[in-house]
Every structure is written in C-alpha cells, then in structure tokens.
Nucleic acid binder design. Structure first.
Lengths: 202, 202
DNA sequence: TTGACAATTGAACATTGGTTCAGTATAACA
DNA sequence: TGTTATACTGAACCAATGTTCAATTGTCAA
C-alpha cells in the first residue's frame, strides 16, 4: 500500500472519522467545507489519489459513494501489545507493536462468558478475589482442569476430579479449604472450562 | 422504545445490514429496489414510522440521510459477565447479565498498552510468565506501586521505590530475586503504572 | 528548466435522491 | 360506522451530489 501525503492522510482520516461518528460517508462538498476548500475538485483530486493508492474505491453513479478499503474499514480494537522497547526511543513512538490485546478476537462471544471470583479458595491457582474468570461454555470439563460447576444455581470455580462412581469432586487451590464431593441428588450443571483470567488492579 | 411491525423491522434490519456490509446507508430507492417496491413512498412511510418510534432520525436536506439511533448503531462488544446463575435455569439462557468485559471500555487505547511478562520475578504479586500486564502510560509511578521501567531500552515490571538521592530501586516480588538500584548514568524511562493483568490459560 | 505531481479555484452538467401530493386497499378499533 | 395505522402505487419537484473541463501555483527531481 502506497504512502499518503499529509493532506491525503487528513482527508482519509476525516472520511473515517465521519463514518465512525456520524454513521455515514461525507459528500465531497462536506469534505470541502470541513477543509475550507472553495472547490469540490480539490477534494476530488485527493479522492483520486486515495483511490489510485488503494485506500478507497468509488461506486459509479451513486451519492456518498466512497468505499473504504477493508483493511481500514474495521476499526482496530483492543490495547496495543508492545513486544520490545526500541533502545533510546521514547515509548510514545510505539514501534515494536506485537498486535492488539482484544478479548473479542481471543474469546468468541457466543461461547464464552466471564464470572467474577468471590473469595480466595482458588488463590494458589492464581485467582484472586474480584478477578474475572473467563469461561468457555462447554458440557465437559476433564479431571485436572479448572472449571465452573453450578450446584443448585450457585456457580463455583474449582479444579475438577471425576470419581469412579461418576460423582464430581471439587478441589480448591488453597490449603485453608477442603475438597468436597457433589451430592448425587444435587442439581449439577457444568458451566464450562476456565481458560482465562482478567484482573483490574486496585 | 415502541414495537416495530414485521415490515418495519425488515426495513430497519436492511438498513443496518447495508451499513455494516457496504459501509454506508442505502438510499430510499435502493431500499425500494431491495424490497421490490414500485414507489419510493412505500419506503418513506416505513421510515416515517421508524422515526416516530425512535429507531432512526433524518438529517434534513441531505442524501442518504438516515441516522441510526445510538442504541442500535454500536455493536455490543466484549464477553458477557454473568453475575449470579439463576437457580434451575440453564446457563445458556443468560439472565443475570452484569454487563460486558470489554478492554476498550475499561482502558482507553490512547493511554494504555500491554506488555508480555517474561520470567517469574513478580510471581508473588500475581504476575506469571506469559501474562499480559496492562499498563497506563504516565510519567510518574509512586513508591510502592508496580510500574514499568525502561532501562536502556529494556522494559521490566517491578515494584518501584524512589530513594532519597532520586535514584530508583526496583523490587521483585519473588524471594529468588534481589532488588536493585538503577544506575544514575543509565537511560531510564518510566513506561507507566501497571493497572491490570490478563492471562490466557494453557 | 522542463516535466511531473500535489494542491487548489471556478464553473457547469447530469444524476441521484429526499420529499411531497394524490390516491387505493386492508385491518384493527372504538 | 367512522377513524386510525399500515402498506402500498404513481408522478413530480428540486436540492444534493459526483464528475468533468479549464486554469493556476508551488515543489522537486531529472
């Protein structure tokens, strides 16, 4: 993708911003007004340049017909992950970008949910009081995995162990707590497997 | 918000779909064509109804001037947070929704970045090897807070302690590691304060 | 110093497209 | 039985808009 001039970048950013904030694409005259151009043709040459460089395309015979190239259409989500900090460079100039930390792209929304941890029964497994456990909703959790058990409507995060008789033993990861077995007559549902953790400090 | 009729909902969904897929709002004639209407006025009555019921608004004197009400414009992001699980109800029917865990709404992208933790020097503060520390970029980190120090281009997460002589002491949270003081002639930059943690398990 | 390119003015043209007026038909409702 | 809301057809008006032609100015590399 070719480089843009300063002005071209400004025009392109304006189109993107308008699309995001107003919900539709500006007309050439609106762009001209925003930049103080007296002629719509000033906009047009910029649009021609943007089109030639692959940033936009235009639908012939339509109003507000600018199409943003797919690469730029999807707003980048998440917080930037910095891999290494370049020697001598200030951090503001993020150069060694390793992608973005975006929960939606890691955990798809249909299969996952978050559960707030109450208490410190899983402290040694790294779950603190107030943390969010990120759970993949699935019907089976194997022995040794950390999962969510819903017993009579109350959800708990514990390490699972299936006993020979088919009963479920839930094992806390904190010496102050004792493992316990779920009664056969309890209403047990499997919430899913814990596959992530998010903590907001202080 | 008032209920929509079947046809009104179809028209509204078509507008939303066009906006999402094509990137801009359809004209009344495009809507008419999509539904096989012979008159643009058929569309207009539906738009009037949608406007009256608060789903859209229209900018006078503009083409493609439909504005989607904010409630419907912004797609919900993040993973659902389940507060309590209702007794007897399967989890699939998410009822006790406590909002959404969405990093973009917690940490604004301009001020925050994520840093992958290498090693176990902060193990007792809850940071495991491979975790992402979420850092708010700020010039000052006070004594006692966990922050990111960039020394000669290498970033480390440690607990900060400012000494009387103005030097910075970095304290690991793991007995196997020793605190150390940053040399006065080192190139020290403050990356920011660590305010969050994300861990992807296994 | 010539040519290419970016940046801009100014004017004009042909469509696109929002809106409105005049009707028709059906169903719910009071 | 009249009223209101929904769901359309058909036609027309005129403002909004994309596009194009003709020129001008400054920059920068060949």
């Amino acid at each position: 993708m070719q480089e843009l001039t300063q002005k071209q970048k400004e025009v392109f950013d304006f189109i993107l911003a308008t699309l995001r904030e107003e919900g539709n694409i500006p007309s050439v005259r609106e762009i001209a007004a925003a930049f103080g151009f007296a002629s719509t043709n000033a906009v047009n040459t910029h649009l021609d340049a943007l089109q030639k460089k692959g940033y936009i395309s235009r639908r012939p015979g339509q109003n507000r017909n600018i199409e943003i190239a797919p690469d730029y259409l999807i707003p980048q989500r998440g917080i930037p992950i910095i891999g290494r900090v370049a020697a001598g460079k200030p951090i503001d100039a993020i150069e060694n970008l390793d992608g973005y930390l975006d929960l939606d792209s890691i955990y798809d929304r249909e299969q996952h949910f978050a559960l707030k941890i109450c208490g410190d029964s899983m402290l040694e497994a790294g779950f603190w009081d107030g943390d969010y456990a990120i759970v993949r909703h699935q019907p089976r959790v194997e022995t040794g995995e950390i999962g969510v058990a819903v017993i009579n409507g109350a959800a708990t995060v514990k390490r699972f162990r299936w006993l020979d008789d088919g009963c479920l033993m839930l094992i806390p990861e904190n010496d102050s707590y004792q493992p316990f077995t779920v009664d056969a007559d309890s209403d047990l549902q499997i919430g899913g497997k814990v596959i992530g953790l998010h903590r907001v400090l202080k």
